[in-house]
Amino acid sequence: MRYAQGGGLTDAGRAARERIRLQAVERFERGEKNREIAAALRVSERSAERWRRAWRERGETGVLSKGSPADRSLSEARLARLERELERGPLVHGWADQRWTLARVKTLIGRLFRVSYTVEGTWRLLKRQGWSWQQPARRAIERDEDVVELWKKEIWPRVRAPRRRAAPGSSLLTRPGSR
């Protein structure tokens, strides 16, 4: 059954469904009728009929799930093009800075291929393609390490809120490792 808004079975649910299909194959091989198989496996007769037809035509592999339909939304050629476009950077595609966000990649996929992904689906697609979440490792060119160290040592201690002192009846006095 297909669900609107990307719903459906979880990975565990799909695995359980796959086991049911394989049990149906065993019963097909024993010559059981579709009605008996459907009742025993608690599926519709129509599903049993469809699985039997696929089993006759392509064997056991015909009965196995083809996976999520979203996995096939972009062909290998389109995925390669998406990679090239991502490498060109967000500036080329009209964004004001050099950060790719999931929302931007989702929008880019829609513009390039007229395919709609959710933000979560976009993340899954990128992970499958080997992309990972990243944070810039570079420091600002203008950063002055000496000034930063001075600020940490002299200014931050004056600005930071003072620690609460333990007083009689305070929970701070009853903690393990406290005074």
Rank of each mutant, 00 (worst) to 15 (best):
R128K: 15
Q135R: 15
S132V: 02
Q134R: 13
R158L: 15
I141P: 11
R143L: 15
K127Q: 11
R139L: 15
D146K: 14
E145Q: 13
A137K: 15
I155H: 07
Q129R: 15
D144W: 05
R128V: 00
K127C: 12
W156K: 13
L126P: 07
A140H: 10
V147Q: 09
D146N: 14
L125G: 13
K152S: 09
D144Q: 07
R158T: 01
I155A: 13
P136D: 03
W151E: 01
R138V: 09
K153M: 07
G130K: 10
R128L: 06
A137E: 09
R128P: 10
E154T: 00
K152N: 10
V148L: 10
G130V: 02
V148F: 03
L150G: 01
L125P: 14
K153S: 11
Q134M: 04
V148S: 06
D144F: 02
A140G: 13
Q134P: 07
D146G: 15
R163C: 12
K152P: 09
P136I: 00
D146W: 01
L126Y: 01
S132C: 06
L150C: 03
R163W: 02
W156M: 12
R139C: 12
Q129V: 00
P162E: 01
R139N: 07
R128F: 03
W156C: 11
W131M: 14
E142I: 02
E149I: 00
R138S: 14
K152V: 02
I141M: 07
R138Y: 05
G130H: 03
Q135I: 09
R163K: 12
K152G: 07
I155T: 06
E145G: 12
E154K: 09
E145S: 13
E154S: 09
W151I: 06
A161N: 05
R143F: 05
V148K: 09
Q134E: 04
Q134V: 04
R138C: 13
L126S: 02
E154I: 00
S132F: 03
L125E: 04
S132H: 03
G130M: 06
Q129M: 15
I155M: 11
L150R: 01
L126N: 00
D144S: 06
E154Q: 08
I155L: 14
Q134Y: 01
R128T: 01
K127V: 08
R158D: 06
W133N: 12
K153V: 02
Q129N: 08
R139Q: 11
Q129E: 12
D146H: 08
Q134T: 03
L150Q: 00
R139V: 06
Q135C: 14
R158S: 12
P162W: 01
P157A: 06
D144I: 00
P157H: 03
P162K: 10
V148P: 04
W151P: 05
L150I: 00
W151C: 12
A161C: 07
